[in-house]
Design a protein around this nucleic acid. Structure first.
Lengths: 348, 348
DNA sequence: GCATCGTGATGATGCGCATTATCAGCACCA
DNA sequence: TGGTGCTGATAATGCGCATCATCACGATGC
């Protein structure tokens, strides 16, 4: 990281000081004792002593170029990670990544330089630093299938955080479909028959999975389900639609929207969950930021991040030896028992 | 990032396909047209076409090893960045870093691998990847002065986020001393005479600056100031101390503690700010997470991050040409006009 | 007809490290 | 005495790229 590196300490210099060759220094540093390489303890210690004294640190670029592992994990987010809109989503994930990387002794390389094309970051560009990393973690609601395919084809070690449809992409995801279905099943068991689902339009697998879980479970349980797309901008309109639907169960994607509708419900004199049950499929990171505990899914995002790192590390270490069945993991998603789901018609 | 790189595309391969030498490819890629190097448009375009078609991407390690800039900014946090305790502190900073890095076209390398020694991360260790970055940003409340000195001595490009006492370390910080003093001055102007300051023990410059600002301003304004160290674990004890002090102005480091004491004040039948004014020196990132707007400092953390990146980029580009006076920047810290500061004795 | 000059490149070299093939020296046995 | 085997290293090579000195070639000048 410098321009005028006249006095930089290299293996060569270490070798001179210890009276050996550069190769010997490298061999000692890499702990090569096997097979044809033999270095007596005495020499080894002499070299290590010099290294200690000089504070030598190997140049990562040179190591990498010579074919060694770098202990760097790339992180690519398809949306900027830190803007306040996505903060609740990314922060716990990154917390998990950081913790796991620290345990592993790896650094995280955030590909923030990726240029934005069509409102989405583009991983592949002229100057990408992908090769610096031993592997890459992919985060984001919607990923470019072409880029994913290109990654899968190339000899890149990749793990996506979140389930992906694209074949060949290993991932650690959350079983949103199962969790959403469980939520609906629970409501069905309580006696709900008419359901309205407010969903936003997104092609992200996680969003689609949640919706699918609701739809499938409703069908199998014989519930009547009304689907209403919404962008959440006009809660009043949404609320009117809910009222007109005659549903006793309202399923909302966003907890924020759920909260807004809850307000309107009570304002209208409805009791929740007595007259109307409300459940949310998403979650916010910050517990306690809501006044009412809405019954909802609570994806274990931090753990998701940790397990993604673990899987990537394993793929890096073992390569093709990792069986396909273990390259795609779905984690269970707990349901938070809030106070907004109960049997319909009751006074609570 | 691979093991079996048989078919990797290199400049050599590009050269073959375009019928030129590797040097020529490199020259074209680096836009070298000056001086003794001349390459006609025709050849240039032919090469660029091949690059386009093959999707060639330069190996960053090789570039770096050969002496080129990498467009990677290192980020070192002396405390883990994402655990929930520090989230309010680091997240807006990282948001600023990310935004600025994106503008610059740089990637961020998080040195998460740094081992923890004595409860603090250690930047210098055998396998650090410092040299991979063109420069490093240092974050954290308390930094190891020895490591800072070593960085300053070496030919590392460094910028600390937050003011640092260590000589030779460029930084972008916040003028906490001035802001804290301004806060006290404002209170003095309102007629306050007895002040109690609850501060936590920390050697971090920012913490010390805030305290110094309060102490100096109180002295100059002729206020009586009582100092009480606290770790915030026992708000009741703190509250007793406040009552016994007879102060009309309570200055608290942590907004959380300020909120807790505010509660106890009203519980005790005191009116705030009628009987007691309360101001906080720190801030939380998430606006609206408090019920009462406590008058306090609001450090512009996101902008702090952005300006730190900008300064580092400048130092990387211009090197020693950046004058010393511009290597150390203090930003103004706005005061949030809350509802907890007023003239003493009044009924509000 | 020979020196000069500009054009359009190229060959060689080094960055710092990992790795492999090789080698000198010595002891040991026949 | 010559062959064999082991020990303790080392020289050489390549990774992919940037950079500089060099060069072949044709045109131009006198």
């Amino acid at each position: 990281m410098s321009r005028s590196d006249t006095g930089r300490i290299t293996q060569q210099r270490i070798a001179q000081l210890a009276g050996v060759s550069q190769s010997t220094v490298s061999l000692v540093l890499n702990g090569r004792v096997d097979g044809s390489v033999r270095i007596p303890q005495e020499t080894r210690e002499r070299i290590l002593k010099v290294i200690e004294e000089t504070g030598y640190i190997a140049d990562p670029s040179a190591r990498r170029l010579a074919g060694a592992d770098n202990h760097i994990l790339g992180v690519f987010t398809y949306e900027p990670a830190f803007p306040t809109e996505s903060i609740d989503f990314y922060t716990p994930l990154l917390a998990g990544l950081e913790a796991a990387a620290e345990t592993l002794g790896s650094d995280l390389l955030l590909f923030t330089s990726a240029p934005v094309v069509d409102g989405r970051r583009q991983l592949f560009h002229e100057r990408n630093r992908l090769r610096l990393a031993d592997g890459v973690l992919l985060l984001g609601l919607e990923m470019d299938p072409d880029e994913l395919a290109r990654l899968a084809e190339g000899d890149f070690r990749v793990v996506a955080v979140g389930r992906r449809d694209t074949p060949g992409i290993p991932y650690v995801g959350i079983d949103y479909a199962g969790a959403a279905a469980a939520l609906v099943d629970r409501a069905a068991a309580l006696g709900h028959e008419r359901v309205i689902l407010l969903h936003r339009s997104s092609l992200g697998e996680s969003v689609l999975d949640r919706r699918r879980g609701v739809v499938d479970a409703a069908r199998e349980a014989g519930l009547s389900l009304q689907n209403r797309p919404t962008d959440g901008i006009d809660p009043d309109a949404d609320w009117r639609a809910v009222r007109e639907s005659g549903a006793t169960l309202l399923v909302v994607e966003e907890p924020e929207l759920a909260a807004a509708l809850l307000e309107r419900a009570t304002a209208d004199g409805l009791s929740v969950p007595g007259d109307l049950s409300i459940v949310a499929l998403g979650s916010v990171a910050r517990p306690g930021s809501e006044t009412v505990e809405i019954t909802r899914l609570v994806p274990p995002r931090a753990e998701l991040g940790e397990r993604a790192v673990a899987l990537l590390a394993r793929i890096i270490a073992e390569g093709d030896a990792v069986p396909a069945s273990e390259r795609r993991v779905l984690m269970d998603c707990p349901i938070l028992d809030g106070v907004t789901l109960a049997a319909p018609g009751g006074d609570r």
